[in-house]
Write a protein that binds this DNA or RNA. Sequence first.
DNA 1: GTTTTTTCGATAGCAAAACTATCATGTTTT
DNA 2: AAAACATGATAGTTTTGCTATCGAAAAAAC
Lengths: 278, 278
Amino acid sequence: MFFINATIDKRFIFVAEFVRNCQKSFFSVNPAFQQKGLPCAPDNSVTVMNLRFTIRPNEKLALRDPESSELGRKIVRQGLVLMHKIGYEHFTFRKLAAEIDTKEASIYRYFENKHRFLLYLLTWHWNIMEYTVIVSLRNIDDSVEKIRALIRIVANDAPDLDDETGLDRNALHGIAMAESSKVYLIKEVDEVNREQLFKPYKDLCGRIAGLFGEYAPTYPYPRSLASTVLEMAQLQPYFAHHLPALTDVGRDDDPDKLISFLENFVFSVLDKYAPKKN
Amino acid sequence: MFFINATIDKRFIFVAEFVRNCQKSFFSVNPAFQQKGLPCAPDNSVTVMNLRFTIRPNEKLALRDPESSELGRKIVRQGLVLMHKIGYEHFTFRKLAAEIDTKEASIYRYFENKHRFLLYLLTWHWNIMEYTVIVSLRNIDDSVEKIRALIRIVANDAPDLDDETGLDRNALHGIAMAESSKVYLIKEVDEVNREQLFKPYKDLCGRIAGLFGEYAPTYPYPRSLASTVLEMAQLQPYFAHHLPALTDVGRDDDPDKLISFLENFVFSVLDKYAPKKN
DNA sequence: GTTTTTTCGATAGCAAAACTATCATGTTTT
DNA sequence: AAAACATGATAGTTTTGCTATCGAAAAAAC
């Protein structure tokens, strides 16, 4: 009870929102009464009305829950940093094991392979993004302002909300930028999709599409526009940094041009279908 | 001389265009006089004014020119099909060698590794795309119509121009769709870029940006818009096929929705900056 | 028209990556 | 205290990615 603080407050909104929206697969909802548990437990769970909600990736993603042990947490935290540093292709469980002073097989007990590991990290990223969108937009009424705030978030120009995950948010953003397409551009995509493992990304995309639909109800391609914005928010800064001939947005230390590009793009497309102004 | 036909004619336009634009790295221009050579040789080269132009990827891409031998051609033709079939991750030189009844080391003599091989295939794709754009747009004056024709081409809804490359165009398109981002989303991107190996993609993107600039000279993000169109023309059909929640465009057998989506957003963005109509 | 390069394809092999089986120890449950 | 289970370490196997070498054949030089 003495744990009820600002963070919990945001969490509560988050949880309440998702409860309203019902089934969110990336929540593992544990309906067991939790008499002795603390409301904001070290495993990052929240107790609401005696129901325990854990803001955490789908458990099918990992063989064992990495948040349940010291080693598991080390694998995720340090693995995230290592992958950001050396890239997905060069990242191996062996190198990670050496770094955190354990053995390869121990990591394999948590994650089937490095592809699943990447997907686990990205699931964190997508969840955090959607959480940030929900929390940041909850007090905004004007749908133009909502979209503007949204674009700042996907362009990584919004302050990170407090969290106790201990994840390196910079590394997470770097991985989302450079590696995210590698989780779905694979031959096994349909199989993975059948396991619902892309749901967090789809939900994020769907939420953005919903905001577009709110502003311009008759626009026929809200989901395509949402995925375009999401992908371009990652890709354009990558191009700016490595292949500047492919873009006009500036380097990543200056997100203003990216935001201008995206805002201009989104509102140019939607304004024609917006009922009120213009 | 009896080889001068429609194809040669198109080639000539292509060559002349590039000669005008001077240095195109993806042409290997062999200035040696070619007295005994045929104008449209089996190696796909064209003789213009005693200069031999070869429409072919940058030679730095391959250790030996694959078009120069029977085995080399088999590697490219069959490798393209195999990679399309099993995907980049599962593709290995060993499997390809087994398929075409040769040995792994023989393939390594042509290509340093499978990443370079993929880049070689994509270079073909980008070259063919730019070639198609040039040839298809040469008789169109109206810049709106030019952009509309362009969108049909990038959306793979334009008839393939005749060529003698013998490449499986369907497989090439599939690889461009599912694997293209894997050539630049790597840690070595700057190194590869320094070798000019992304020039064909940049040139294609620059040409599209040029068309946008022609139509809307004051639009500040023509290159970003061009890369967005190129990327989305690949990604949206992929989503439609595998992750339909992320898109509103239909399945790949119906490109109309993709074209509508792309046309709608390109013209929505550009129209504000177009001087004439509106 | 031979000799000499050079190229070519094939054999073999190595090192790293990707995973798996087994086992001992330690911890939890009963 | 015993049984059940989870955990981490050891030691493999298979596949991938790549290299060194060698003999035959083709091309170039003389």
